[in-house]
Design a protein around this nucleic acid. Structure first.
Lengths: 293, 293
DNA sequence: CAAATAGTGTCTTTAAGACATTATTAT
DNA sequence: ATAATAATGTCTTAAAGACACTATTTG
């Protein structure tokens, strides 16, 4: 059946004569929070190195926020989805063709970019960072992995007649060599949904501290009930390494026996063992979804 | 300190001379999946009415998709956030000033709107629908609550060397009076993150069936570990009603004793009781965050 | 052997699942 | 009385928390 509108046009005719007009439109960028886990320098010959959660940042080589550190990202182009734009950015920055990718949230405060109206559709990617050759994109001068420290400073509960809200103040510290970036974010969970606001910011461009905080919350939350942490592991890993990854994301120690019970269906034995550690060798495991061979 | 870029401009000078240029930009719409729970007509005088999950749809009064049913939504304007645009739309359509609101995902397939490049930043709102006067917006001819039926038709697991994927085929049926809208969506959960594709669609405009399916998944998931279902309740409710809401969202029956143990900290007794039911009266409860009086 | 980590066993605690029983109401 | 729902008790099952113990390795 063919529908006719008030001006007696069919849909084909309507689309043929359609003029998008001059409504103002935003630019839309796909920004990437790329997480990896790496090892801190080994303390002594038989101790295991500590794991650290890292995020990829790029030093801005142009205005605005010249010299500040920013998330990799770029504008979405006409014939692609935001996810495709994010993947393109991932490839350009890390050379990696595919990785776990998840859309997070679209950040749209009108003045988040001083140039013009730019929304950011933020994504999170997880990968094993060992052996990745970082290459900075066009308008970037430098790309680096920053070590993440994210701690709860303060928590308070306010009860008002219209509802109660829980406010948390978090501190974000990103370190790479001598460079330390610093931010504080306030998170309020109320009845109209959650919100994050930036209360302090030193060294990070735009609202990227807020986006990183949002991503860390998502990661912490999902690590507890999904298998997404496996995407941060190399092909072969020990269960202690996997546990360290869970611990560094959650920011708390876990019991070994309970942890192994919990993740036993997510991994498969390989029969291979670590060698030349100053202690009993541990077995290497692989992800459950990668078939043995 | 003042940074100077390659053209020796300060940030102020740079912004003053900045010209956004003619990169193509998308329109960005905020679309709303507004959920309510209502009672089916009471079967007999002493039986409790069944609850049903409902979503608000608007009949399109113009091209494209003339006559089809669509989610309420509108374009984001220059000095507002997508969340503000969503709230504006909620107000226009329902008259409700505030409700639980959560951003879901930005849908950006380039051809999702036949007119031009339009992204949809989808939101979910939860409210008690009793006593809401629906008023259709400008380009809409009719606004109605549709009863949701969402069922799993098929599930399969594929293991390939590059990873295993789990595919589910879901059927969405939306009913209001004699109008039945119908769609099927395929959901794949793999290692590159999840994806939803529309495989069949009858009566719904654009990719809105996909957005509704996405919202139902989010709702089902979050109902299990948050208190968001309370936002669907009126000020006073019985525990059986609350349980029915959980059941209609999850699509499965729950054990009464276990349910009450689980939600006991989310509600407060009021001491008031239902009257004139053909059975033992049940106590009315309120949400934990609304103070007693 | 000493200093590490690997890998398990097991007891306790808590939460969820599955019924069953008793209590109240309006007709 | 009867047909409903309300409210709670309790036994079972499963998962998580908390330790402790034994097994291997290399300098």
């Amino acid at each position: 059946m063919t529908h006719i509108n008030q001006n007696s046009l069919t849909e084909q005719e309507f689309l043929a004569q359609y003029n998008p007009g001059y409504y103002p439109r935003p630019s839309v960028a796909a920004d990437m929070v790329i997480f990896t886990v790496g090892s801190a320098p080994e303390p002594n010959y038989r101790k295991l190195p500590e794991k650290e959660l890292r995020v990829l940042l790029i030093r801005r080589g142009g205005h605005p926020h010249l010299g500040k550190w920013a998330l990799p990202g770029g504008f979405v182009r006409p014939r692609e989805t935001v996810g495709e734009a994010a993947l393109r950015e991932l490839r350009e920055e890390t050379g990696v063709e595919s990785a776990y990718l998840e859309q997070l949230c679209t950040f749209s405060e009108p003045d988040r970019d001083p140039r013009t109206w730019v929304m950011s559709c933020a994504h999170m990617a997880l990968m094993d960072g060992e052996g990745i050759q970082l290459s900075a994109g066009d308008d970037a001068s430098d790309a680096r992995w920053f070590r993440i420290k994210y701690t709860l400073l303060e928590e308070s509960k306010t009860v008002s007649p219209s509802g109660s809200t829980c406010t948390q103040l978090w501190q974000l510290e990103l370190t790479e060599g001598d460079t330390v970036l610093f931010a504080k974010v306030r998170q309020t969970s109320g009845q109209q949904g959650d919100e994050i606001t930036l209360t302090e910011n030193d060294g990070l461009a735009f609202d990227h501290a807020k986006i990183i905080a949002y991503a860390i919350h998502r990661l912490r939350n999902k690590v507890e009930y999904t298998d997404l942490a496996l995407n941060l592991m190399p092909e072969r890993f020990t269960l202690t390494e996997l546990q360290q990854v869970y611990e560094v994301i959650l920011g708390e120690p876990l019991y070994k026996a309970a942890f192994r019970r919990k993740i036993k269906d997510l991994v498969r034995e390989t029969g291979e063992y670590i060698e030349n550690a100053g202690h009993r060798p541990s077995q290497l495991f692989r992800r459950y979804w990668e078939e043995s061979r």
